[in-house]
Amino acid sequence: MTAALAFAAALAAAPGPPSPPLPPSPAASTTPVISAALTDTNVQVKSDFRGARIVLYGAVFDAAARPSDVVILVRGPEQPVRLTRKQRVAGLWLNSRPVVFRGAPGFYRAASNRPLGDIANFGVLRRLGAGVDHLTINAPEEQRTETRYGVRDVVVSRLGSDYFVWRRAVVRLKEKAGLYHEDDEGVRFVDRGLFRAEIALPTGAPTGVYRADILLFQNGVAVSRRIRTLTVEKVGLERALYVWAHERPWSYGLAAMAFAMLAGWAASAAFRRD
């Protein structure tokens, strides 16, 4: 840390030709700054894919050494969620009309060095979407605006007071599948200002671009933010089959069926007993 500070100071003091203004050096300014890096920015899904663990390292640069909290929010590509509720009708458990929730990330992980509720207040967490309770998931198809008690444009959900039960169920089911997780001990300070966190991707993690927001909190306010991206993609045969099946579904279907029938014919030829 001291070496880094000295290096930064030397950089700032170094004489030379006039150059475009450099971004403020972390140590030179009085505002605290956070920086972070992922050990792996590309996760490849192959036939042996069984999930992945990605390590995130970072450092807090604060000359004044004020008490700092670190919150890491990892969001996968958005995936709408269709949810149904089992209802008892005439002795049978039947599915209700499905409800579509928009804005739900396909993967979500919130990690912090202590419980989110102790780091910042409700409003701050809500604005940042920090924590599974503050995700901006809603069901726009179920909503309408109406005038209530003389107030115009009040958003009303057709689900009524059940709305929160439905919303909690989305989070609960996603948590069960290992796709959503909130860990209030997920960020560990390994040395002064230096922290480490692990992001575990389950097998069912969606493919696409993931965004990690690394936030530095001081006194309940987010004072610095870094954004890192991570790509999860299928490679090799898995990718070839997936792309084929989704972009040219008819030729894929024909080829798959031809292959299956050929295999059946070959089998009967191989086991012919006469």
Binding site: L241, W250, Y252, G253, A256, A263, G264
Partner: peptide, 27 residues
């Protein structure tokens, strides 16, 4: 045969790897 092609074309839900694995044992 037709159902398999239609399911792949309309619903993109045919997994050839799964079908092949089942076939290996099934034969």
């Amino acid at each position: 045969g037709l159902t398999g092609v239609l399911q792949a074309g309309r619903n993109q839900t045919v997994d050839i790897v799964l079908a092949t694995l089942l076939l290996l044992g099934g034969i």
